[in-house]
Design a binder for these strands. Structure first.
Lengths: 208, 208
DNA sequence: CTTTGTCGAGACTCCTAGTCTCGTCAAGGT
DNA sequence: ACCTTGACGAGACTAGGAGTCTCGACAAAG
């Protein structure tokens, strides 16, 4: 046994092992190739089923190399999502709550639309039901997204824009709930108009 | 080949075949047993993976009997969800929007809490990604739920309680979005307090 | 130049989805 | 009564994916 206990969330370096680590080092390029290939396969509408074999093949990597660093397929997908989402947060600051919300959701919807994020989300949510590790990544990921959005409400609160009994946690869940629900059910588009409507209704719910 | 094209949604009777149908008839008890066993296995936290074999075993039914009437596992789960959800809708009418909403979500949350509806929902959403038939059931199911909730907003609209630019479709998706998001992510409980908070914020978003 | 541990490749086991076949049984029709 | 049709439970069977194991090659350090 080596120490494949790579936290799927935080993997800055070797886990500070007792022994100084001898032997060949981990190939970082292979790691990146796996994560990129996973995203690519998820994006490709021609691919119906995501398998470890396909990921390894597409990444030009042996299957064992995948399993050496990730315990299950769910862990690979979870880390791919985590890496992908960490890239594009960017909080707006327009000076008004409804302006901030409109811009925040416009950007969020745009990022979601161009990729096949639905399949990724479903894969992770589904994996979280079975694997504790995937559930942890999902919890961490969503918590970071929520706290970003919550910041917009807190700023508005400090400006005195909110009703005193408005609850930022509820407002945040309303916003992301709307996003997830439309993404997963797919009955209505997540376009710029939807972002604007969402922002207005959310601002109305918060307004004093 | 027979005609196993049983619409998973609507299966009132035999499909009005050209031939008057000879031979032994479908065993309705077996059908009900399959759906009930599916719900039961989904509910049981001891069961981790739902398989057709387990369903058939638990229902006291041959595996082929399942496949004779449902094309895939997803179809079975989807129909189980559909049947289960059709049971408990019950629209409140308290005379005020916030009262109606509070009661609606209180009842909805309570129904969700007692069963393991999360696993069921995840299973269906996940199946909908792969199978058109499952997607159809999910779309139909969610559409019926939305139109029930939309009715509450429409009544309020007729009473003049809504802002003129409030959009019932957006409000409905905010409500169910909140529910789905908390159910799937599980970071906050879906209890009576949450129902009350949701109702108040939603009413505030709609109010003139 | 030896040790340690990663690499790609692929064979292997285990399990589940879905198919097929069997002997049996129920609902007609004649 | 008897025959045909098709559903029934049981279980063998195939196809394919998850995850494990082993191989020879190779890279990093002492």
């Amino acid at each position: 046994m080596e120490e494949p206990q790579v936290s799927a969330v935080e993997e800055s370096g070797r886990p500070a092992a007792a022994r100084p680590h001898t032997g060949r080092r981990r190939n970082e390029a292979a790691r990146q190739a796996v994560l990129s290939a996973t995203m690519e396969l998820l994006r490709d509408p021609g691919q119906q089923e995501l398998t470890i074999d396909k990921i390894a093949r597409a990444a030009g990597v042996g299957k064992q190399t995948v399993y050496r660093w990730w315990p299950t397929k769910g862990a690979v997908v979870a880390e791919a999502m985590d890496r992908h989402a960490s890239a594009v947060v960017e909080l707006p600051d327009t000076g008004s709550l409804s302006g901030d919300l409109a811009e925040f959701f416009r950007a969020s919807f745009a990022a979601l639309a161009d990729q096949g994020m639905t399949r990724l989300l479903v894969e992770v949510v589904s994996g979280a039901q079975r694997e504790r590790a995937v559930a942890a990544v999902l919890a961490d990921f969503t918590a970071r997204r929520r706290s970003a959005l919550r910041l917009l409400f807190q700023r508005a609160q400090e400006r005195g824009e909110l009703r005193p009994d408005a609850d930022p946690s509820v407002l945040v869940d309303l916003g992301y709930g709307f996003l997830w629900y439309r993404l997963l059910v797919g009955h209505e588009p997540l376009d710029a108009a939807a972002a604007r409507a969402l922002a207005e209704h959310l601002a109305a719910a918060a307004r004093r």
